[in-house]
Protein backbone atom coordinates (compact mmCIF):
# COMPACT_ATOMS: atom_id res chain seq x y z
CA UNK A 1 0.00 0.00 0.00
CA UNK A 2 2.46 2.66 -1.15
CA UNK A 3 -0.62 4.76 -2.00
CA UNK A 4 -0.66 5.90 1.62
CA UNK A 5 2.86 7.31 1.24
CA UNK A 6 1.70 8.98 -1.95
CA UNK A 7 -1.22 10.67 -0.20
CA UNK A 8 1.02 11.73 2.69
CA UNK A 9 3.41 13.37 0.22
CA UNK A 10 0.51 15.18 -1.44
CA UNK A 11 -0.66 16.51 1.94
CA UNK A 12 2.89 17.67 2.63
CA UNK A 13 3.14 19.49 -0.71
CA UNK A 14 -0.32 21.05 -0.27
CA UNK A 15 0.58 22.30 3.19
CA UNK A 16 3.85 23.88 2.08
CA UNK A 17 2.42 25.45 -1.05
CA UNK A 18 -0.62 26.90 0.69
CA UNK A 19 1.45 28.44 3.46
CA UNK A 20 3.80 29.95 0.87
CA UNK A 21 0.70 31.53 -0.67
CA UNK A 22 -0.46 32.69 2.76
CA UNK A 23 -3.67 30.73 2.38
CA UNK A 24 -5.48 28.87 5.11
CA UNK A 25 -8.03 27.02 3.02
CA UNK A 26 -7.51 24.81 -0.01
CA UNK A 27 -10.74 24.70 -1.98
CA UNK A 28 -9.51 22.47 -4.73
CA UNK A 29 -6.49 20.35 -5.60
CA UNK A 30 -5.70 19.10 -9.08
CA UNK A 31 -3.56 15.97 -9.37
CA UNK A 32 -2.18 14.17 -12.45
CA UNK A 33 -2.00 10.39 -12.16
CA UNK A 34 -0.61 8.46 -15.10
CA UNK A 35 -1.76 4.92 -15.76
CA UNK A 36 1.87 3.73 -15.37
CA UNK A 37 2.55 5.71 -12.21
CA UNK A 38 2.09 2.49 -10.16
CA UNK A 39 -0.70 4.18 -8.21
CA UNK A 40 -3.78 1.98 -7.94
CA UNK A 41 -6.78 4.28 -8.05
CA UNK A 42 -8.96 2.30 -5.62
CA UNK A 43 -6.15 2.04 -3.09
CA UNK A 44 -5.43 5.72 -3.61
CA UNK A 45 -9.05 6.72 -2.93
CA UNK A 46 -9.12 4.57 0.18
CA UNK A 47 -5.82 5.98 1.46
CA UNK A 48 -7.04 9.50 0.68
CA UNK A 49 -10.17 9.14 2.79
CA UNK A 50 -8.16 7.87 5.74
CA UNK A 51 -5.21 10.23 5.51
CA UNK A 52 -6.76 13.65 4.85
CA UNK A 53 -8.77 13.60 8.08
CA UNK A 54 -7.82 16.57 10.25
CA UNK A 55 -5.45 17.95 7.61
CA UNK A 56 -5.67 20.99 5.37
CA UNK A 57 -7.09 18.73 2.64
CA UNK A 58 -9.97 17.35 4.70
CA UNK A 59 -12.69 19.31 2.89
CA UNK A 60 -10.79 20.01 -0.32
CA UNK A 61 -12.36 19.03 -3.63
CA UNK A 62 -10.00 16.62 -5.34
CA UNK A 63 -9.73 16.64 -9.11
CA UNK A 64 -7.73 13.76 -10.57
CA UNK A 65 -6.64 13.77 -14.21
CA UNK A 66 -6.08 10.20 -15.33
CA UNK A 67 -3.36 10.31 -17.93
CA UNK A 68 -3.32 7.61 -20.56
CA UNK A 69 -0.19 5.86 -21.74
CA UNK A 70 1.70 6.96 -24.81
CA UNK A 71 4.91 5.53 -26.22
CA UNK A 72 7.41 6.19 -28.96
CA UNK A 73 8.99 3.30 -30.82
CA UNK A 74 12.78 3.48 -30.84
CA UNK A 75 12.88 1.32 -33.93
CA UNK A 76 10.47 3.09 -36.28
CA UNK A 77 9.70 6.31 -34.39
CA UNK A 78 5.95 5.69 -34.39
CA UNK A 79 4.03 7.27 -31.54
CA UNK A 80 1.08 5.32 -30.23
CA UNK A 81 -1.31 4.80 -27.32
CA UNK A 82 0.16 2.31 -24.88
CA UNK A 83 -2.20 0.22 -22.80
CA UNK A 84 0.24 -2.15 -21.13
CA UNK A 85 3.94 -1.60 -20.53
CA UNK A 86 4.64 -4.87 -22.35
CA UNK A 87 2.75 -4.01 -25.55
CA UNK A 88 4.62 -4.03 -28.84
CA UNK A 89 4.80 -1.21 -31.36
CA UNK A 90 1.65 -1.53 -33.50
CA UNK A 91 3.59 -0.45 -36.60
CA UNK A 92 6.73 -2.59 -36.58
CA UNK A 93 6.01 -5.09 -33.80
CA UNK A 94 9.17 -4.31 -31.80
CA UNK A 95 9.26 -3.96 -28.01
CA UNK A 96 11.91 -1.25 -28.19
CA UNK A 97 9.70 1.46 -26.84
CA UNK A 98 10.03 4.54 -24.72
CA UNK A 99 7.12 5.61 -22.51
CA UNK A 100 6.49 9.31 -23.12
CA UNK A 101 3.23 9.75 -21.23
CA UNK A 102 1.58 7.87 -18.39
CA UNK A 103 4.33 7.93 -15.73
CA UNK A 104 3.03 11.22 -14.26
CA UNK A 105 2.33 11.60 -10.59
CA UNK A 106 2.18 15.24 -9.67
CA UNK A 107 0.29 17.95 -7.90
CA UNK A 108 -0.69 20.29 -10.68
CA UNK A 109 -2.42 23.15 -8.94
CA UNK A 110 -4.34 24.36 -5.94
CA UNK A 111 -7.19 26.78 -5.57
CA UNK A 112 -6.71 28.49 -2.22
CA UNK A 113 -8.42 31.19 -0.25
Amino acid sequence: MHELSVVMSIIDIAQKESSKANASIIDEIEIDIGCFSTVEIDAFEFAWQQAVKETILETTVKKVNHIKGKAKCLNCSAEFALENIYDACPVCGEHLIDIIEGKELRVKSLIVS
Binding site: V6, I10, E17, K20, A21, A23, L105, K108, S109
Partner: peptide
Protein backbone atom coordinates in the same frame (compact mmCIF):
# COMPACT_ATOMS: atom_id res chain seq x y z
CA UNK B 1 5.30 29.64 -7.89
CA UNK B 2 2.65 31.55 -9.65
CA UNK B 3 -0.32 33.10 -7.98
CA UNK B 4 -3.32 34.21 -9.91
CA UNK B 5 -6.27 36.13 -8.56
CA UNK B 6 -9.25 34.01 -9.39
CA UNK B 7 -12.08 35.81 -7.77
CA UNK B 8 -11.64 39.20 -6.16
CA UNK B 9 -14.70 38.94 -3.98
CA UNK B 10 -13.80 35.63 -2.39
CA UNK B 11 -10.03 36.12 -2.56
CA UNK B 12 -9.55 32.79 -4.23
CA UNK B 13 -6.23 32.20 -5.95
CA UNK B 14 -4.84 29.51 -8.20
CA UNK B 15 -1.42 28.24 -7.21
CA UNK B 16 0.42 26.50 -10.06
CA UNK B 17 2.29 23.81 -8.19
CA UNK B 18 3.47 21.42 -10.92
CA UNK B 19 5.38 19.36 -8.43
CA UNK B 20 6.15 15.67 -8.58
CA UNK B 21 4.44 13.92 -5.69
CA UNK B 22 7.67 12.10 -4.92
CA UNK B 23 9.69 15.28 -5.18
Amino acid sequence: HDLKELDHHHHKKIVDVEKDVLH
